[in-house]
Design a binder for these strands. Structure first.
Lengths: 290, 290
DNA sequence: GCCTAGGTCCCGTTA
DNA sequence: TAACGGGGCCTAGGC
């Protein structure tokens, strides 16, 4: 998350200036210029350009383009809602006919097009793109482009119901618990959870087939490879573990005896069958102590 | 995409009514009640409740809660921008301190929290959740909850800079080109692209290890298994193909001779080595004819 | 830049 | 409902 959220990362066409250019705390940290609860009719963009929010309802194409362009230039988070078509071309290609969608342009170059359904955007562009907001044939057109790979997203509005630019200041980063990394820590601090006598020797140990999650020895000194998963696993995880075990067997000696243990909350039936076929083992553990 | 976008799919607390309840074309299809380009101060929510957009700049917590609750009830796409904390608990758990974020509540129950960076939301909830917007200790709190699995997302605002509700009508669905399905069609219509004499016999043929993309015979009548990938592949795809080949060898005869061919634009070095070790083959093909 | 693997992956399809 | 695999996956970490 950026602390200086209004700084443009895309870095093209440095323009007029940014909101709150000289202070780092930005709009939300200073005393509000407006009393709480002002209505749209009181909080016009023109009168409070440094408040961190600029909006327009039912703007003309030109007004929307100006607000969006200015917002992008200032490093704001820009949103548009309206009726549009979306065309994408790059690693794949797609077309989307007219419909009402929510468009978000982020200062890091990401672009998102959301319909009213689904967690995933219907179309998007990853961070690192250049956003271009222009008027084409009297309509607002937003284009988000990047090279390597060459990819372009073109959003053509037939009407814009809402346009907004937000100055975002977000100094915090997310702290997640319950990941595979937590499972790893749990095992490293309590190796006996895997089995009595297990001794971890390395994490991310490299093999010709890739890095092993945890590498160690059992009570009899036999090499043990652990593949960790934070949730119930299917056949893919078995294949992964199998590759590591086979690679290590080749790498150590031709006759090396390497045990492979899949550590996860549970396995599917097919995965269990594959484990049995390959002579691999399973230990049930969750990232949390539950 | 929904044609009746304002219909609530979550289906709880049926309330007052929906925008444009009796027509299916909604706000954007009818003649606009407002001239284009009206300013925020002219387009107040109270005066145009059926125009498909309701917004407030710097609302009080109560006003934001009312707008959001009403929007959710009416099946609108609701957005909030402001300073907030986010707590998630479910399959994993996370905490996020105070910062400026954009929150989107979709009528299908999806919730998205976006910072100014990244294509992915920093926190989210999948479709199927219930959104609850309330006042807690004079602050707006948005909670999105689901059971199976039990998961909850709680967003606590210290201030709301913008609140909006959009009626979204999106009859279109996305049409993508350049997928694995396109590669499959390409091969089925021109099997010789794989190799001269190749004859596809089935797609999605079931094996004990899963469904094979394309199942067929070579010019000598030997069984051939194709694993297709739309892009450059790594070790995982080799493992997948290997599982299918081994399963078929067991399934047909003990001494069955089954060829496995990975079809993709290209492979990584490690994947190539794994292919060689397992006696599998590679054919370079892209979904498009390029 | 590529490679490798994780993800609260999401998502569609099928049994 | 669970399972399985695709995805324009995205994202982080190495090299």
């Amino acid at each position: 998350m950026s602390t200086r959220s209004w700084a443009r990362s895309g870095g093209s066409t440095p323009s007029a200036g940014r909101w709150c250019i000289s202070t780092t705390s930005a709009a939300f940290k200073r005393e509000r210029a407006l009393p709480r609860g002002v209505r749209d009719d009181e909080a016009v963009e023109a009168t409070h350009p440094t408040d961190g929010v600029r909006t327009r309802v039912n703007p003309t194409a030109s007004e929307a383009a100006e607000l969006a362009s200015d917002g992008v230039d200032r490093g704001a988070l820009v949103t548009l809602f309206g009726r549009c078509t979306v065309d994408y071309e790059g690693r794949a290609a797609s077309e989307l006919g007219l419909g009402d969608r929510h468009v978000m342009l982020k200062p890091d170059g990401a672009a998102l097009v959301h319909t009213d359904e689904g967690q995933q955007p219907v179309n998007w562009q990853p961070p690192g793109c250049e956003h271009d907001c222009r008027i084409d044939d009297q309509h607002l057109v937003v284009e988000s482009h990047r090279s390597s790979p060459e990819e372009s997203l073109v959003i053509r509005f037939s009407s814009v119901a809402h346009a907004a630019a937000f100055a975002a200041d977000d100094p915090e980063s997310l702290d997640v618990v319950g990941t595979e990394a937590d499972l790893k820590e749990r095992i490293l601090s309590s190796p006996e959870l895997v089995e009595s006598g297990f001794r971890p020797l390395a994490t991310e140990r490299e093999t010709p087939a890739g890095a092993v999650d945890i590498y160690g020895e059992d009570r009899d000194g036999r090499t043990v490879v652990l593949e960790l998963k934070r949730r119930r696993v299917g056949p893919d995880a078995v294949g992964q573990l199998s590759r590591y075990v086979e690679a290590l067997q080749r790498d150590l000696h031709a006759d090396a005896d390497v045990r492979g243990i899949l550590v996860a909350p549970s396995v599917t039936e097919r995965a269990e069958a594959l484990l049995a076929e390959k002579g691999l083992e399973f230990v049930s553990l969750t990232p949390q102590g539950k």
